[in-house]
Simulated scan of single mutants.
Amino acid sequence: MIVTAAPRLTQIVREVWKPLLVLFVWDVIVTGFYIWSPFRAPSLPLTIFGSVLALFLGFRDNAAYQRWWEGRVLWGAMINASRNIAREARNFLPEAEARDLRRSIVLRQVAYVNALRTQLRRQKVDEEVLRFLSRGEAEPALARANIANGLLDGTGRRINDAKTRGWIDTIQQARMESTLVDIANAQGGMERLKNTPLPNQYRFFPTFFTHLFCILLPIGLVETLGLATPLGSTVAGLMFLATLQIGDDLVDPFANTVHDVPLTAMCRTIEIDLLQAIGEEPQPPVTPVKGVLW
Rank of each mutant, 00 (worst) to 15 (best):
A96I: 14
W167N: 05
M1D: 13
I35G: 06
F24D: 07
N114L: 10
G50N: 06
L57M: 07
A86C: 11
E139P: 07
V292L: 03
N195V: 06
R268H: 03
A186K: 11
D100S: 15
T210M: 03
L53G: 07
R8K: 10
D169K: 02
A255D: 15
E127T: 14
Q123I: 05
D249T: 07
F132M: 00
T170W: 04
R121K: 12
K18H: 10
N62V: 13
A86G: 05
I278M: 00
D61G: 08
Q172R: 11
E223V: 06
T210F: 04
A265G: 02
L274D: 03
V28T: 14
D249R: 15
T229V: 01
I215M: 13
G71T: 11
V13I: 15
I35V: 14
D153T: 12
L142V: 08
D260T: 02
P197A: 01
D273A: 02
S104K: 13
A41D: 06
A98M: 07
D126E: 12
Q172P: 01
E137D: 01
L74W: 10
G71V: 08
R87A: 08
E137W: 00
A265N: 00
M176S: 07
I147H: 00
V25H: 05
T155D: 05
I270S: 00
N185M: 13
R175L: 12
